Computed example of a mutant assay.
Amino acid sequence: MGSADRNKSDVIFILLGFSDYPELQIPLFLVFLVIYMITVVGNLGRIMIIRINPKLHTPMYLFLSHLSLLDFCYSTVITPKLLQILLVENRSISFASCITQYSFAAICVVTEAFLLAAMAYDRFVAICNPLLYVVVMSPKRCALLLIAVYTWGIISSSIFIYSLLILSFSSTNVINNFLCEYSAIFSASISDKHVTEMIFFILANFNTFFTLIIVFTSYLFIFVTVLKMHSTSGRHKAFSTCASHLTGVTIFFGIILFLYCVPSSKSSWLLVRVNTVLYTVVIPMLNPLIYSLRNKDVKETIRKLIELPSRWPSG
């Protein structure tokens, strides 16, 4: 075991990033820097808005604040390293740092997937059982859902990490991407990968399809309930409360399924990198916009915050 630990400490990964496009390094750095700044301001700002407005102290906004926290953490785990390898020629990362980056990223991704499922359940209760909403989605129930979501995110990612730690690697390994993600680390291994491959296949598919079943089932009942409504305005209001979440779910799971469930996508590493950028860098920036632009309470709070300095007494 001691020898294996020493060997792991000598392992180095080289993140190629977008090095095959040298003329784009600086433009990409500027683009990703702006995206990261928008992501930080958007997600931390949304958390602050939800906390300061009593109207937003509801289960739906509680889940949204945790979604913002996950997006902020996820982007912060990934983007700074991406910015670094776009500026410097040394794109190496130690095995410990690589596994650490993947660990936090995996926790955020799995937790966000199950959080989106919890949000779908919240919308199901709000639309299909509105009279019982306060009872079903009580503060205690919401807290238990969040504890379960985060706990499974940590447990699931720990299993993924263990399945990588049992592998062996050569001293220098090239990752044709800008981050340490599972398939890239897995591909770099020089040992038998059968057990690791089975662990990933079973757990990744369980996480993906279990959350999708919850989302699809919730929206199936929502759709049936909305169709039974006689009021056109009631239907519109019901659909509008789900539109943002449904958009976020479609983008998130669409990209994840394309990357990990469509074998042909692996044939183009450029396509893989572009899609990885979408779900690691762009989605955390888009989520605050998706969930806020159509929300009157959030927009009203933002407007009041903007107008606040003009109300201060001059002098």
Results as ranks from 00 to 15, higher is better:
Ala4Leu: 07
Asp5Glu: 12
Asp5Tyr: 08
Lys8Asn: 10
Lys8His: 06
Asp10Glu: 14
Val11Ser: 01
Phe13Asp: 00
Phe13Lys: 01
Leu15Thr: 07
Ser19Asn: 11
Asp20Tyr: 10
Tyr21Ser: 11
Glu23Met: 08
Leu28Ile: 10
Phe29Ala: 08
Val31Asp: 03
Phe32Glu: 03
Leu33Phe: 11
Met37Glu: 12
Met37Arg: 07
Thr39Gln: 14
Gly42Glu: 03
Leu44Ala: 14
Gly45Leu: 06
Ile49Lys: 03
Ile50Phe: 05
Ile50Val: 14
Ile52Thr: 13
Pro54Val: 06
Lys55Met: 12
Leu56Asn: 01
Met60Phe: 09
Met60Leu: 07
Leu62Thr: 10
Ser65Ile: 00
Ser68Asn: 12
Leu70Trp: 00
Leu83Val: 11
Gln84Asn: 11
Ile85Tyr: 09
Leu86Gln: 12
Leu87Val: 04
Val88Thr: 13
Arg91His: 08
Ile93Cys: 05
Phe95Asn: 09
Cys98Met: 05
Cys98His: 04
Gln101Asn: 13
Ser103Gly: 08
Ala106Lys: 06
Ile107Tyr: 12
Cys108Glu: 05
Cys108Phe: 13
Val109Trp: 07
Val109Ile: 15
Ala113Cys: 13
Leu115Phe: 06
Leu115Asp: 01
Met119Asp: 04
Tyr121His: 10
Asp122Glu: 15
Arg123Pro: 07
Val125Cys: 02
Ala126Gln: 03
Ile127Gly: 04
Ile127Gln: 05
Cys128Val: 14
Asn129Ile: 05
Leu131Ile: 12
Ser138Ile: 02
Lys140Ser: 09
Arg141Tyr: 07
Ala143Ser: 15
Thr151Gln: 02
Thr151Ile: 08
Ile154Asn: 03
Ile155Met: 12
Ile155Ser: 04
Ser156Cys: 14
Tyr162Phe: 13
Phe169Met: 08
Thr172Trp: 10
Val174Lys: 01
Ile175His: 05
Asn176Val: 02
Asn177Met: 05
Asn177His: 11
Cys180Leu: 03
Ile185Ala: 01
Phe186Pro: 00
Ser189Asp: 02
Asp192His: 00
Lys193Gly: 01
Lys193Tyr: 00
Thr196Gln: 03
Thr196Lys: 00
Ile199Cys: 10
Ile199Lys: 02
Leu203Thr: 08
Leu203Cys: 05
Ala204Val: 05
Phe210Ala: 14
Thr211Val: 08
Thr211His: 05
Val224His: 07
Val226Arg: 01
Val226Pro: 00
Leu227Gly: 09
His230Gly: 00
Thr232Phe: 06
Arg235Ser: 00
Arg235Asn: 01
Ala238Gln: 06
Ala238Leu: 07
Phe239Asp: 00
Thr241Tyr: 04
Cys242Leu: 10
Ala243Thr: 11
Ser244Asp: 15
His245Asn: 14
Thr247Met: 15
Gly248Thr: 12
Phe253Asn: 07
Phe258Trp: 09
Leu259Cys: 05
Cys261Thr: 08
Ser264Ala: 13
Ser265His: 07
Trp269Glu: 14
Val274His: 02
Asn275Gln: 10
Tyr279Pro: 02
Tyr279Ile: 15
Val282Pro: 01
Met285Tyr: 04
Asn287Val: 13
Tyr291Trp: 13
Ser292Thr: 15
Ser292Leu: 09
Ser292Gln: 03
Leu293Ala: 12
Lys296Phe: 12
Val298Pro: 04
Thr301Gln: 12
Gly315Pro: 02
Gly315Leu: 11
